[in-house]
Design a protein around this nucleic acid. Structure first.
Lengths: 221, 221
DNA sequence: AAAAATATTTAGACTAACCTAAATCAAGGC
DNA sequence: GCCTTGATTTAGGTTAGTCTAAATATTTTT
């Protein structure tokens, strides 16, 4: 079946919203996320429903069908593999890869994806630390937690960022933080969830709750 | 200015036809090349003309403006660079690269193209031997001639193929011929332009005029 | 140079993907 | 249980890109 780039973007959006909340995704949430009017969203939901990509009942919200889920995971897989390619092979900075991968993720060729995967050495995570689904849609579940929610001082590894925007990525890059870095959490403020870190090279960094929410870490030893 | 993939494909088609004939390109030629009806082509020509990408006068045919020409060359550049990537890095066979490059050529990012070019080592030719325009649109003019037009026996280097179709590429691959191979032309028949070659490894090959027309060679010493 | 054949354009219609404005449904407060 | 409010859908319109059929321009033939 023929699925357009636009339709793929809707499927991807439903997937993303379904991940961060649970239950059905509302028309208005999609409208906000895609920056389209609610009426346009309703239009598209009807079409996606005809194609059996989603479960949709008027006024009841929407969820991905098995078929839609497989499609969504495949798009995410392509997006993240291309991000790795752009970062590791073409040496783009991690704040530049998202927009280009947004276009590349729609290229249609299973063979291309599979060869790219091999070429990159079957990476498990993209440059932001997001897990890359394998060809069967399975991905590593890393149980990293947000810095702002760390409840025990100690050593942690920066595993993932959940904000992919340029301003955020530039900010933490300037602070000298990147995926894989080891840091010591010296304090997480009980009142405003701001935190104080010490990096491997001895620098002390203060982060707001807002920044700390978007940096996920894994405990070390 | 915003230019769609479809518009880009029209520009590319006009460019291709302008290369192989001279003078203005007719609506019908474009219709045949793009597999769209002539009426649809007329429609599009009006739009491309508004955007100053082509010179178009009713019933008089069409040619690229300076702006359209620059765009066309850039699309060709992207197409051929991606073909090199697919062949050299992902090890696709040369008959598989065209269709995927057809999609990749529309990815919008000057930075991506320039980094890809560098990553590939600034290649001058694609896997079919077609010259790759550099960032300023300049490309190597190889003065290879068709095998079927060779008028002197001797040693030649296979420089380029002008048919990119799977059947043709598979056929000559089966014969054991590829870009860069050295061959001795033993005879070009004066009556039907079929020819007889000897390859470096001693094999003798007969080619029809049709095949000989699509294989371009350069004389050696 | 007029007629016939061919090429091209115009007219009108269709689909995908969007929009605005109006109508309708659903949920919580009273 | 009704009513107000906000969410959602319907109705009707737009643009890009396609189509068919009809009209018109150009070219070729005689």
């Amino acid at each position: 079946m023929q699925i357009s780039d636009t339709e793929e973007n809707y499927i991807k959006a439903i997937f993303a919203l379904q991940m961060q909340e649970q239950g059905e995704v509302s028309t208005n949430r999609l409208s906000g996320h895609l920056l389209n009017r609610a009426a346009s969203v309703t239009d598209m939901l009807k079409r996606l429903s005809e194609k059996k990509l989603i479960h949709y009942e008027k006024y009841k919200g929407v969820s991905l069908s098995a078929k839609g889920y497989r499609l969504a995971v495949n798009i995410v897989r392509k997006h993240r593999l291309w991000e790795v390619f752009l970062k590791e092979k073409l040496h783009f900075k991690w704040d530049e890869v998202h927009d280009i991968a947004e276009q590349l993720e729609h290229i249609q060729s299973e063979e291309l994806v599979s060869r790219l995967d091999k070429y990159l050495g079957y990476p498990k995570f993209d440059p932001h630390g997001d897990p890359i689904p394998d060809k069967d849609g399975l991905m590593q579940k890393n149980q990293a937690i947000a810095l702002a929610r760390v409840d025990r001082k100690g050593n942690y590894r920066i595993a993932r960022v959940t904000d992919h925007s340029r301003p955020f990525l530039n900010y933490i890059t300037e602070l000298g933080l990147k995926i894989g870095d080891l840091v010591r959490v010296e304090e997480v403020n009980a009142y405003d969830a701001s935190c104080k870190l010490k990096t491997a090279d001895g620098q002390t960094i203060f982060l707001s709750q807002k920044a700390g929410t978007n940096i996920l870490v894994e405990q070390r030893r």
